[in-house]
Design a protein around this nucleic acid. Sequence first.
DNA 1: CTGCACTATGAATCGCTAA
DNA 2: GTTAGCGATTCATAGTGCA
Lengths: 289, 289
Amino acid sequence: MEIYTDIRLGDCKEVLKELPENSVDLIFTSPPYADQRKSTYGGIHPTKYVDWFLPISEQLLRVLKPTGSFVLNIKERVVNGERSTYVMELIIEMRKQGWLWTEEYIWHKKNSFPGKWPNRFRDSWERLLQFNKQKKFNMYQEEVMVPMGDWAKTRLKNLSETDKTRDESKVGSGFGKNISNWLGRDKAYPTNVLHLATECNNKNHSAAFPEGLPEWFVKLFTKPGDTVLDPFMGSGTTNFVAQRMGRNSVGIEIKKEYYDMVKEQIEEKKLVLFEPKEIYETAKHNGRN
Amino acid sequence: MEIYTDIRLGDCKEVLKELPENSVDLIFTSPPYADQRKSTYGGIHPTKYVDWFLPISEQLLRVLKPTGSFVLNIKERVVNGERSTYVMELIIEMRKQGWLWTEEYIWHKKNSFPGKWPNRFRDSWERLLQFNKQKKFNMYQEEVMVPMGDWAKTRLKNLSETDKTRDESKVGSGFGKNISNWLGRDKAYPTNVLHLATECNNKNHSAAFPEGLPEWFVKLFTKPGDTVLDPFMGSGTTNFVAQRMGRNSVGIEIKKEYYDMVKEQIEEKKLVLFEPKEIYETAKHNGRN
DNA sequence: CTGCACTATGAATCGCTAA
DNA sequence: GTTAGCGATTCATAGTGCA
């Protein structure tokens, strides 16, 4: 299968207009967080954040396929001792734009940055907001199943009386059918809480999120050959993951420095792609939830 | 030390007016969640939820001491395939009332309700919203520190194969490596993510939350002799915990059935209070974070 | 007292059917 | 059309009983 990795330089608000409508299966991104310090990368003041983001999310709504999903990794900052409300306002405004706010996943960062403050503890979680265009969308739940708890072994040997009763009460058809549901089952569906450690990259650039994060959602919401978009590419984590997993991807980055870096690395990776099988196997190591 | 446990019957919107202003150190409560079904206990329609809650939070703002905290346990439900936005709207409106939204803790429910749906996974977390009257408030961080040595030991011993596969295999970091960070340290500050299982009570009443939840916040935000308030008492978990930990408490409940039950149990507990030490030790079993 | 087997059930959600 | 009621689905935990 031939896939492409399309890296573009520019302001995503403008560059997105070049993309055809209904062409993307998954948007996974982590936009620059609101920040009062203008000096930092893309610092947008908290009070302007929603106004700044809405034109972008409007384009995202246009390019996303009706069956696609938009996953937004974001967490509000503390301003004057309070959590800002711009994320909540954003959700409310995006719904007015036509987005459905389907779910909020939690990314629990296991090794969050240490620190001590007089009136709060370490912040060790971030939001992963899932938006959709319609109630029916593609979701491949089996792809992200996790090993089941230890109890399953004994459970499989003898079904408990409770289960029998519960099952029999349903219909007179008996519980044989239900037993078959359990046989051979060694995996369970995950929950909406993801446990991942923040990655410690010894590279010269730091990723906002670990590879496991986009990987989980790429598996969950796309199949090989689908297209993934990250309008705030940064160090390109989303695109590298997409490429490794056999998905097309588009990445947009406003800073030439990052753009060049990703361009270079993407070229390198292409060489490796001649052995896709092996790469896929290595990738499968990554555990999740 | 002599403490009181004050249980009152009635609608908290009215009963709260009887309480003096600036008299409570901690409000910990879990109001009835919005629900479309009117038949269930206190079912408030999602679209009316904010209007229903604001008069109550106004009273709570009045009775809370300036140095006190208000912790609200809540989670929005799914309506028509979307998460409702009433919790976000509530936060925004409460800030207009004068509340500061200081922090959002996450309660990660390890044993969430099972089930499978076409477009979502099991919901295994709830919000614990912390509101304050001013930026400076009482917080006793040392009281909730996690003993590192013990924690690591039990963690290592009890670590099931599933845990390892699920949580640790993702990055190269590995579990052992992280342990080494903790050696030589007695205690560590927790984060804003709490891990607790929902209690599996085979008693005749079920609590909405496990005792560990109010216990953690009572420790964190009050000292012995302080006053704790739960305006939606329910089965009285908050008040039992407060009493056991030597805090005064006020509980308000609209349903006579629950009110009577708690009244009865509070009386029983008083007898036991002659041996506070032993009780406290047993209570410490409740795991957290 | 420890360990193992087994039981009970929990702030759930979707889709269909009846009113 | 819209809404309310009900069945089906499903996993981790604590508690009990017994060897």
